[in-house]
Design a protein around this nucleic acid. Structure first.
Lengths: 159, 159
DNA sequence: TGACAATTACTGCCTATGCAGTCATTGTTT
DNA sequence: AAACAATGACTGCATAGGCAGTAATTGTCA
């Protein structure tokens, strides 16, 4: 292992990646959600639709894994999307525990309609970033995310 | 403005900075919090203590601004920290609307005691990152955060 | 000086969501 | 085949936190 990045001297609230992530997420959510407001969708709804659109997942459990989200919460969010006719449930025939999800035509239409506004939102935020910097940010976040996934939630290591 | 970073073709759930941030935060929180579990502190408590320790803020309103957090929530969190004797409130003499916050000796001790574990947590996550990469990540996150702060929450731009 | 705006701390209310448990179903192991 | 573990969808419960409102105080401006 390389030498540690943070030391007691170089760790501060402003340089803490955890604090930065938390704060950035807090700032981002209401701003991103404002783009969906007229369709009455939250950011979380949007991410679910993205997962379905991109074929990353087609069950509640899949979505929960892909979003690192609580699967019970996903069930309730899918309830809402189903009620609005954006998503359809269909019990699997091969494994009767599973309920497959699919976007309806209406769901696809809403997703398509909201995409430009979402792209604008992020492109404006990134306007002072070079393409290389934006790519680098995505790469670093992805690597950190993969590492995080492999890191178990510590249980009382100290004795 | 440079040409847009995302286009309909290059925007996907996996490349979306918003999705990555959200997911990374979701993964990070319980893992980071496990380090504070025996002291019965949440990550949010920790950030408040960091803000006080680093002199970034000394009132609830300041903390809320620095964390991009709800100030009502901060009031309640400070209640908890005060009840445990980690933080002390003192009404300002010059502006009687203001209540100044200060860490108690006990608060300082707890903060100091938890620091090594927190440093380890992040240093382990960053072990595959060069120092330059970690610095770059901090820089990019900070720039994005500053830009986000300047971006108002859109109100019905469409007609 | 008096009216009004801005700010601070704080509070009630409501929703999102994490946790833990249930039931149904499937896979595995002996 | 029978027992048991694992997985899926779903549900009740508890809590964190956002929103909006209040009272006190201060600043501003006519």
């Amino acid at each position: 292992m390389a030498k540690p990045f943070y030391s007691a001297d170089t760790y501060s609230a402003q340089r803490s990646i955890g604090c930065l992530l938390r704060r950035l997420t807090n700032l981002m959510l209401p701003r991103a959600e404002a783009r969906f407001a007229d369709k009455d969708l939250t950011f979380t709804h949007w991410v679910i639709l993205m997962c379905l659109r991109d074929g990353l997942a087609d069950t509640c459990a899949d979505i929960a894994r892909h979003m690192s989200y609580d699967s019970g919460a996903i069930t309730r969010l899918v309830d809402q999307l189903e009620k609005r006719g954006f998503v359809a449930r269909k019990r699997s025939t091969t494994d009767r525990r599973v309920v497959h999800l699919a976007m309806t035509a209406e769901g696809k239409a809403v997703t398509k309609a909201l995409t430009p506004s979402t792209l604008n939102f992020w492109n404006e935020l990134l306007e002072d970033f070079s393409a290389a910097e934006a790519e680098k940010l995505i790469e670093l976040l992805t690597r950190l995310l993969n590492k995080m996934e492999k890191t178990p939630i510590a249980q009382d290591e100290a004795a």
